[in-house]
C-alpha cells in the first residue's frame, strides 16, 4: 500500500477534503429525495468510496480523459462536472449535462474530459485504452483513465484491454475501484484470481487503501508518472468499501460487507490527519461543509426550475 500522511500539506488536504465532502453531501442529499420520485433514474451512490475518484482526479487536468461506469456521481464530480448540471440530469431536465438523455448512468462533459459513461459492466474499460491510443498516435500530452469496479474484472473486455494495452504500449491508466462486491456477490464468489497479481503480469501495479484519499493520491501520482516516463500502461488498485446497496439509497446490509463508519470513512480519516498536524481547524472544516450545503441548495433550485424536454426532441441525434 502506498501513502504516508507525513507529507500532506494544508493546501492539498483542504482541496481533497472539499471534493470528498462534495461527493458525500451530494449523495446524502439524494437519499431523502429519491423515494419521492423527483429523480426517476437508477442511482448508484458513491458513499464510502469517495477517496478513489478524489485521489485520482486531483492529478488530472480538464483535457485528461476519464471513462467510467454506472457508478458515476463520484468520478464525475471529482473530474469537475458542475453540481447543477449533474442534479438537473438526475431530475431529467434539459439543463442536465446530457440534456436529460443520459440519466444518472450516462453523464457527459467534454470540457472536463468526460466523453460519456456506460452502464454496461466491462466494455467501458476499452474506451480509455482507445482514447490513450489516440493520444499516443497524435503524440499528445494527455492522460486517459479507464475506471471500473472489481465486478468488471470478470468481463472479457477487461482482459482484452489489459492485453492490448500491454502489447502495444498504450499509455492508459487502469483504475480498479475494488469494493469487494459485484452487485451482491462477494469477490471470492466472482473472481478466482488475485486481480493485482494477474494484472502484474501485464504491467506495473500500484496498490492503495481506497478508504484513504492520501494513499490513493500518492499511488495515482506514482502510476501517472510511470505512464508519462515509460509510455506504458499502469494499473492502480484501490481496496475500498461500499456503504450503500448496489443501486438505490438504502444502506448495504450484506454480511460479507461489514462497514465501520468511523474507521472506513475517507472524510474522517483525512480530517483526523489534518487536525493532528494542525493543518485545519474545526471552524474551517465546518465552513467547507456549510459551503457545500449552500451549493447543493442552489443546485436543487436550479434543477427544479429547469424545463423538461419536449417531445419534438425524441428523434434527434439518431
Amino acid at each position: 500500500m502506498v501513502g504516508d500522511t507525513a507529507n500532506l500539506t494544508r493546501e492539498l488536504g483542504l482541496r481533497l477534503l472539499r471534493k470528498l465532502r462534495e461527493i458525500r453531501q451530494f449523495e446524502e442529499r439524494i437519499i431523502p429525495l429519491y423515494p419521492t420520485d423527483v429523480m426517476v433514474t437508477p442511482v448508484h451512490l458513491h458513499i464510502g468510496q469517495e477517496a478513489v475518484p478524489v485521489g485520482v482526479c486531483d492529478h488530472l487536468r480538464p483535457k485528461d480523459l476519464l471513462f467510467f461506469g454506472h457508478r458515476t456521481h463520484g468520478p464525475a464530480l471529482a473530474k469537475g462536472l458542475d453540481m447543477n448540471r449533474l442534479m438537473a440530469e438526475l431530475f431529467g431536465r434539459t439543463t442536465g449535462c446530457a440534456n436529460s438523455f443520459g440519466g444518472s448512468m450516462h453523464l457527459v462533459d467534454p470540457d472536463n474530459g468526460m466523453l460519456g459513461s456506460s452502464a454496461l459492466v466491462g466494455g467501458g474499460i476499452a474506451l480509455g485504452v482507445g482514447a490513450a491510443l489516440a493520444a499516443k498516435l497524435e503524440k499528445r500530452d494527455q492522460f486517459c483513465v479507464s475506471w471500473f469496479g472489481d465486478g468488471a474484472v470478470d468481463s472479457g473486455a477487461f482482459w482484452e484491454s489489459l492485453n492490448f494495452a500491454a502489447l502495444k504500449a498504450v499509455p492508459v491508466m487502469f483504475v480498479c475501484e475494488d469494493n469487494g462486491l459485484s452487485n451482491v456477490m462477494e469477490k471470492k464468489d466472482h473472481m478466482f484470481a488475485d486481480i493485482t497479481e494477474v494484472a502484474g503480469h501485464f504491467m506495473e501495479v500500484w496498490r492503495a487503501d481506497g478508504t484513504d484519499v492520501h494513499s490513493v493520491w500518492s499511488a495515482a501520482g506514482q502510476a501517472l508518472r510511470h505512464i508519462r516516463e515509460s509510455g506504458k500502461p499502469a494499473f492502480l488498485w484501490c481496496r475500498t468499501k461500499r456503504w450503500m446497496k448496489h443501486q438505490g439509497v438504502e444502506t448495504d446490509d450484506l454480511e460479507c460487507n461489514p462497514v465501520d463508519r468511523e474507521k472506513d470513512c475517507p472524510i474522517k480519516k483525512l480530517e483526523k490527519a489534518m487536525k493532528a498536524r494542525n493543518l485545519a481547524s474545526d471552524k474551517e472544516l465546518d465552513e467547507i461543509t456549510q459551503g457545500i450545503e449552500a451549493q447543493l441548495n442552489a443546485a436543487l433550485e436550479f434543477a427544479k426550475k429547469s424545463p423538461f424536454p419536449t417531445e419534438d426532441l425524441l428523434m434527434t441525434e439518431v
Binding site: 471513462f67 466494455g123 474499460i125 476499452a126 474506451l127 482514447a131 490513450a132 489516440a134 497524435e138 486517459c144
Partner: peptide, 18 residues
C-alpha cells in the same frame, strides 16, 4: 489479438478522442 469486443471499444475510445 482476437479480441473483437474490446478492440471495437478501443476504436470507439479513439474516435471519441478525435
Amino acid at each position: 489479438p482476437v479480441s473483437e469486443n474490446a478492440m471495437t471499444g478501443v476504436a470507439l475510445g479513439a474516435a471519441l478522442n478525435g
